[in-house]
Simulated assay, not measured.
Amino acid sequence: MNYAYLLAAIVCEVVATSALKAAEGFTRFWPSVVVIVGYALAFYCLSLTLRTIPVGIAYTVWSGIGIVLIAVVGWLAYRQPLDWPAIIGMGFILAGVVIINLFSKTAGH
């Protein structure tokens, strides 16, 4: 269940960060509401994962997957290009998350 909370935290953070660009410095009301509510839910869900998953592992997974998803959202929604070094770097981030989850004894399995 803790990884379900972590997944929810990641999704909420990605939604909030995506809306942050649309909020235009908090000058647009509804995107600003999405940012505030999304980050609040993200941190709440992240806090629930910390009951059993070590903070370093939880934060690594949260930020690593979040980085990649935000880059994909930027590419799809905002037409922000991704060059090969960026794609390769994100591949390394994902590889690190997979290695932690498959092989680390501290990952809370």
Rank of each mutant, 00 (worst) to 15 (best):
Y78V: 01
R51T: 10
V68C: 12
M90S: 15
P81L: 09
I87R: 11
L102P: 03
G96T: 12
D83M: 05
V97D: 12
G38I: 12
I87Q: 08
W62S: 09
A58W: 09
Q80C: 00
G66V: 07
V72P: 00
M90V: 10
D83L: 08
V73Y: 02
V73L: 00
L46W: 11
W75E: 03
L50W: 02
I65W: 02
A40K: 10
G74K: 04
L76E: 00
L41F: 13
D83K: 08
A42L: 03
V73N: 02
Q80T: 13
R51G: 13
S63H: 00
Y44K: 09
S47R: 10
L46G: 12
G74S: 04
I70Y: 01
V98N: 09
P54T: 00
M90Q: 13
S63L: 05
A71W: 02
W75H: 14
I87K: 10
V55M: 15
Q80V: 12
V68R: 03
T52D: 12
V97H: 11
I99D: 00
A77K: 06
I65Q: 05
V37P: 06
V68E: 01
G56L: 06
L69T: 02
D83T: 11
P85Y: 06
G74A: 07
I70A: 08
I67W: 04
L46Y: 12
G38L: 11
T60M: 14
A77Y: 03
G74M: 05
T60F: 13
I70D: 02
L46V: 06
A71S: 14
G74N: 10
F92R: 08
L102E: 09
L82D: 05
Q80I: 04
V98C: 08
A58G: 13
L48T: 00
A95E: 00
I70C: 07
G56C: 09
L46T: 01
W75K: 04
S63A: 15
C45K: 01
A77S: 07
S63K: 01
T52R: 14
T52K: 14
V72K: 04
C45Q: 14
